[in-house]
Design a protein around this nucleic acid. Structure first.
Lengths: 149, 149
DNA sequence: TTTAATGCAAACTATTTGCATCACC
DNA sequence: GGTGATGCAAATAGTTTGCATTAAA
């Protein structure tokens, strides 16, 4: 088996340490650096590919043009704040009946779905009490939905 | 204004001639060719950018890694057959209550959503009567949903 | 003449791969 | 020694831009 799985391990640790969060390869790479693990970008890429195959992470398509990853949990959808960039996980339970209706309507046998919601999070709806703005998807957040992980 | 809007016009014609369909730049480029209009890829790119700004087309993010376009109609979501690649439009009405629930649940003010469904279309659910399989998103289809355009 | 459209080539971004090397069993 | 992990560099894929040219008002 693997004799030197340092990067993969570090990546898993990193991702698990942050609660729900989605990561681009670039974010993973640079965060890894700031945790003291130097690694080539391609190594991060390959480690993530492996983690994906092994089922530890899942590929997430936001509308970012780049691939994001998240730790594998039960299926859920994503809600992104257009202001601060925070990505929250939302349960997809509320979608169930909509999907059922769509199956009837279209005759498709729907196997999977991907929902990306865009909006404004609670914090950013405030008149900015102490300038809570950010621009990357670097929030520690995800706390909005407790029943997910 | 434009003095020579040939490509843009041809593109609009092409897209309108096909009912609902989503197009990648590559598809647009090659289809344009087979309709007899030679154009550089970058010209197609720019023409589409213009059509988008002018509101004639809309950018669609499937999970394809490439950008797709569709003629602007009322907001709807997309359902892709995993077998034949056909992309159908589905009304997003059934989503309304789900989104409402999610707003309450998360506190987000949801402004927009994007839903991509994956499944098997009616044709491909059959035992393949006369081998109806394709692999690109080249269906003339979209007829499944009448109330869309 | 002025302006937008076009073609060609090249830059860019993000991802992916080839290959030699390295660490660990 | 053998196998997988890693780093470095380069290839890809898709998109986008710079620039000179062309066509129409």
């Amino acid at each position: 088996m693997g004799r030197r799985a340092k990067i993969g391990t570090a990546l898993k640790g990193l991702m698990n340490a942050r609660g729900h969060h989605t990561w681009s390869l670039e974010e993973l790479h640079s965060e890894l650096g700031s945790v003291g693990v130097r690694a080539d970008f391609s190594s991060v890429f390959r480690a993530m590919a492996k983690l994906e195959v092994d089922g530890h992470v899942r590929r997430v398509e936001l509308d970012d043009a780049r691939t994001h990853f998240e730790v594998t949990t039960e299926h859920h959808d994503h809600l992104r704040c257009a202001t601060c960039g925070e990505v929250a996980a939302v349960p997809c339970g509320p979608m169930a009946s909509a999907i059922e209706q769509l199956e009837i309507l279209t005759g498709f046998d729907i196997a999977d779905h991907r929902l990306v919601l865009t909006g404004t999070c609670l914090k950013c709806q405030q008149p900015a009490p102490q300038s809570e703005q950010r621009s990357g998807a670097t929030a520690a957040g995800g706390s909005l939905v407790g029943g997910i992980a």
